[in-house]
Design a protein around this nucleic acid. Sequence first.
DNA 1: TGTACATCAGTGAACGCGCGTTCACTGATGTAC
DNA 2: TGTACATCAGTGAACGCGCGTTCACTGATGTAC
Lengths: 233, 233
Amino acid sequence: MSPSRSLTARERARAELTSEIKHQARAQLAEHGAHDLSLRAIARELGMASSAIYRYFPSRDELLTALIVDAYNDLGDAVDKAGKAHRKPRLRWRACCTAVREWALAHPQEYALIYGSPVPGYAAPQDTVAPAARVPLVMLDTVRGAHEDGRLDPAFPGPLLSPTLKAQADAVAAAVETDLPADAIARAILAWTQLFGMISFELFGQLVGSVDPSKPFFDHAVETMAEFVGLRA
Amino acid sequence: MSPSRSLTARERARAELTSEIKHQARAQLAEHGAHDLSLRAIARELGMASSAIYRYFPSRDELLTALIVDAYNDLGDAVDKAGKAHRKPRLRWRACCTAVREWALAHPQEYALIYGSPVPGYAAPQDTVAPAARVPLVMLDTVRGAHEDGRLDPAFPGPLLSPTLKAQADAVAAAVETDLPADAIARAILAWTQLFGMISFELFGQLVGSVDPSKPFFDHAVETMAEFVGLRA
DNA sequence: TGTACATCAGTGAACGCGCGTTCACTGATGTAC
DNA sequence: TGTACATCAGTGAACGCGCGTTCACTGATGTAC
């Protein structure tokens, strides 16, 4: 199994069909939601026996896990790309937040799969942890950039951190190897929950009848959170 | 059907069994989640024929709707009660936010039912709109109280509202018959999405590994949003 | 290069299960005279 | 107060459906000599 060896026909076929299965699964997801994801339906759509799926995924849960990991990574890629397009922290922040929302609107069921209510009876395995961390990491990294330029300047002092929260924020800082102060970490986490709260509310229909369409509110909130976090224009 | 007429035995039995069905349904919800809610399982648990449920709810969807309305109202009651216990805006705000979180932690599946990903194939009917609005109304009312006392004092100016957002905020103000300025409305909506974003993240497992346990962060965010909205201590 | 064997992909039938909903029915409760 | 009729609650069988997973199998692809 030397890494440079070219793939056999069998390996190529396998990779291709694996991704076709996932592709069909995503299509089903888009139409019926995660709970109704059916191996038989996927097989039917692919014109193969339902038992054949088991050559590729040992169970429905494993397929779900793969879809979850893919979704996190797809979103992560989109946000990475958006972030890399800008150097100035405020612009980067804006681009990242917008990228999250746009990805969510373009992939509502995949968004629901990863940020909606957990599928009951399904426990997300360890494999999802790292991909799930990608978006908050990019956001934190944006804040770190501003901090390193000495331009991090929160709009108002805000309450002191409790000892527990400070310890948690310090632990996060240590984990991502930055010297961001705990207060900045806490602000970033708050903005992170704000961002996804807003998007979930939009997607799940809670904003109908108040801020609907939601883009103006979204944009406003993104700017507000940027100021709050300290990314001045 | 004069309102003062006392109920017949039949009517009493009907009301009782209706609520027993919902009670059992909630128990099922707590164990398996909304999608796995099964009329047959409920009937089984109640020791009756599955077809008997149809004397009480014309379909599974109608039962789901009833549960959704009940959940919104149960949460609404909890938040109302918490809010009424305090006169000072900051304390009221804190009590309401905390009440939402505590209700959510105590009823995770009911929370997921109303704030999680929508059940696919199920369209929430009009009946859910008013109950769903109760929590944001209490939050807005708290802000209004502070404003009427002349004590509304946001921690920082924040970006100007775009014309569309201003119009939406004004429409909300008109709908709830208050003279709160559009800026205050927008801040309250932002805090509202923040509150539920945070709680959803906690419940759905996104905070594991960063701010976990989440209460210190939650409390901190509540105070921060209070300052942001303008409810100074 | 050719052959023998091992590995893997895909099949189709089967197991065992649960679901929502309908329907004709029995028997109990309520209502009008 | 008693009786005849209408209303309603609850039953149990049936319809028609889909699901995840297993298993023994055939036939194709890959590997070692």
